[in-house]
């Protein structure tokens, strides 16, 4: 299924994306997806369906065997793609709330902007402080990661990615490894970002959250896009068999 949007310029265009490991069956098969500026797209699907791999392809952490990815019109699948530059514009937050253990929170956040983007440290410190304040962790700026909880670390990971001023944020099951009490605080941050108009692609298992944050739901199964719909439609009236089966898993 292809969703085309002739009115707005798509920020990210994925065309016929194919990903395989060796000669095994493709992990991703003919993925077509357009993401517009300001859109929050949530990717749902059973385990192993390839949704994390999709995100990792967009970030250059995985290679692509077929198809194309266009970011602001420029192809990301060519030979001379400078991933260093691209990754400054595509922010990613991982499931493992890894921060650099040998640096304080603040040092973690300013590393990218200062060393990669070569920005003035003073300006970055100000921005970092603002962002930390918004997630309620300004008082932890000089603390080492080992003294923080999973939820706190994940929120700081989001701040770190935001400080690079990306054009699009990728969230890869960021709450999957967290204790239930901490999931909410992280999802609230993402919800806030979405309301402010950040373009994002989110992979998650949290259905309630998906419903609240998504402009569109993309359902992937076995590496193929099965169904694309607005959240209300998807959750109340899924059109495909697979989607129905998937949603049933969450009903007891």
């Amino acid at each position: 299924m292809v969703i085309l949007n002739e009115n707005k310029q798509a920020l990210l265009e994925i065309q016929g994306l194919r990903k395989m490991y060796g000669s095994a069956a493709p992990v991703l098969d003919d993925i077509n997806l357009s993401i517009n500026k300001g859109e929050a797209v949530v990717v749902l699907g059973p385990s192993g369906c390839g949704k994390s791999t999709l995100l990792r392809c967009l970030n250059g952490l995985e290679s692509v065997q077929g198809g194309d990815i266009k970011f602001s019109g420029k192809s990301l699948t060519g030979k001379d793609v400078s991933w260093q530059e691209i990754r400054q514009k595509i922010g990613m937050v991982f499931q493992s709330y890894d921060l650099f253990p040998h640096m304080t929170v603040m040092e973690n956040i300013i590393l990218g902007p200062v060393k990669v983007q070569k920005r003035q440290e003073k300006e970055v410190l100000e921005q970092a402080a603002q962002l930390l304040d918004r997630v309620g962790l300004l008082n932890k700026k000089d603390v080492y990661p080992r003294q923080l909880s999973g939820g706190q670390k994940q929120r700081i990971a989001i701040v770190r990615a935001l400080c690079m001023n990306p054009e699009i944020m990728l969230f890869d099951e960021v709450t999957a490894a967290l204790d239930p009490e901490m999931v909410r605080e992280v999802l609230d941050v993402i919800l806030g970002l979405a309301k402010q108009g950040m373009t994002m692609l989110i992979v998650t298992h949290e259905m309630g959250f998906a419903k609240a944050v998504a402009d569109r739901i993309v359902f992937i199964d076995s590496g193929k896009i099965c169904e694309v719909a607005k959240p209300d439609e998807f959750f109340t009236n899924p059109k495909t068999e697979r989607a129905k089966q998937f949603l049933n898993i969450f009903q007891y």
Binding site: N59, Q84, L99, M164
Partner: peptide, 11 residues
């Protein structure tokens, strides 16, 4: 994951 982290901020 540390390495991927570093790469994803453009190092």
């Amino acid at each position: 994951s540390q390495i991927e982290l570093g790469l994803s901020i453009g190092l």
